[in-house]
Simulated scan of single mutants.
Amino acid sequence: MKNLITLLIIGLLSTSCGGSSDNSQARNKTTNSTVTQWYEGGTLHKAKIAEWKTATDKNKLSTCGDFMAIVDNSVSMDILKIRAEDLKLCIDEATKGLDSTNNEAVSTIAALCIKQMEY
């Protein structure tokens, strides 16, 4: 049952987090500088693994932060970042060198990693 709930949450996340690129670009800008927080600017919620593989580490990390915040938003930002880094690593490792995963949804692989990591 927990597995089903996790998959449903990730599914909901993938449909609710996919904002337009204009919104993502607007979020990335601050009034005084172009520096953004690690959790800002994730755009890979609805992406395929082929896009994941060419994305920046920052985009991957911020997307993973969004996924992990949906799973458990009661943790500190420091813990959330550690969990997001773990999820990013899991997705990278699970798809490394496997062209057969290129058409899989990032959210599907993320859900499998979250299940494996037992969050």
Rank of each mutant, 00 (worst) to 15 (best):
M1R: 05
K2F: 05
K2W: 05
K2D: 11
K2Q: 09
N3H: 02
L4I: 14
L4K: 14
T6D: 00
L8Y: 07
L8N: 04
I9T: 12
L12K: 06
S14K: 11
G18I: 04
G18Q: 14
S20G: 08
S20Y: 00
D22I: 12
S24C: 01
S24F: 01
S24D: 05
Q25Y: 00
K29N: 13
T31D: 01
T31C: 10
N32S: 12
V35A: 15
T36Y: 09
T36V: 13
Q37E: 08
W38S: 10
Y39R: 11
Y39M: 04
Y39L: 03
G41A: 04
T43G: 06
T43Y: 02
L44Q: 06
H45F: 12
I49E: 09
W52H: 06
W52S: 06
A55C: 11
T56M: 12
T56N: 13
D57R: 10
K58C: 06
L61C: 01
L61G: 03
T63R: 04
T63L: 02
G65S: 07
F67N: 00
M68I: 03
I70Y: 11
N73E: 08
N73Y: 04
N73W: 01
V75A: 04
V75T: 14
S76H: 09
S76N: 07
S76Y: 08
D78P: 00
I82R: 10
E85H: 10
E85R: 15
D86E: 14
L87D: 07
K88N: 09
I91S: 03
A94Q: 04
A94G: 01
T95R: 12
T95F: 14
K96W: 03
L98C: 00
S100K: 12
S100C: 02
S100Q: 10
S100A: 14
T101N: 07
T101S: 10
N102I: 06
N103I: 07
N103A: 11
E104A: 10
V106H: 08
S107K: 08
A111L: 07
A111R: 05
L112E: 13
C113D: 09
C113P: 09
I114K: 10
K115S: 06
M117S: 13
M117D: 12
E118H: 12
Y119Q: 13
Y119G: 08
